[in-house]
């Protein structure tokens, strides 16, 4: 079982934060197909998030095909995002580790690396949406 929480200082809407944490848990293998997500009430009680926010996140995850709601028994994991290309994930991770060492060697700190990554991702998004 994962514990979902909301970072009030984050600029991301609360329901998106919850979605992101579920997707991350799926990617990292903390949640596997068939696992039950915490009930809405459990998330409300542990994280101080409004029930409507949790329901919205679960509904969006369901629309994305990642989870399914079973009446009376809860919300269950259906599939994992990026579970298919597991081999590719391993390779990409190795490349990234090398790249990060290179960046550190070149004198970049973690903040520099994050800024660089955000900028490249933003450029990439812009390129693909045009």
């Amino acid at each position: 079982m994962v514990e979902l929480r909301v970072d009030r200082a984050s600029g991301l809407p609360a329901y998106r934060q919850l979605m992101q944490q579920v997707r991350e848990a799926l990617r990292l293998g903390w949640l596997r197909p068939g696992d039950r997500l915490p009930t809405v009430r459990e998330v409300v009680a542990t994280s101080g998030v409004n029930a409507n926010t949790v329901l919205k996140a679960y509904r969006e995850l369901e629309l994305a095909g990642l989870v399914e709601a079973r009446q009376g028994s809860g919300t269950f994991v259906k599939a994992s995002p990026g579970a298919g290309p597991r081999q590719a994930m391993t390779e990409l991770r190795e490349q990234l580790e090398k790249w990060v060492s290179g960046a550190h060697a070149a004198g970049l700190d973690n903040e520099d690396i994050q800024a660089l990554l955000s900028a490249v991702l933003a450029d990439n998004n812009r390129g693909s949406s045009q």
Binding site: V40, A51, N52, L55, Y58, R59, E62, L63, E68, A69, R70, Q71, T75
Partner: peptide, 10 residues
């Protein structure tokens, strides 16, 4: 399925 899965109150 969505309707069945969501809480009727919300």
């Amino acid at each position: 399925k969505l309707a069945a899965g969501s809480d009727p109150a919300t």
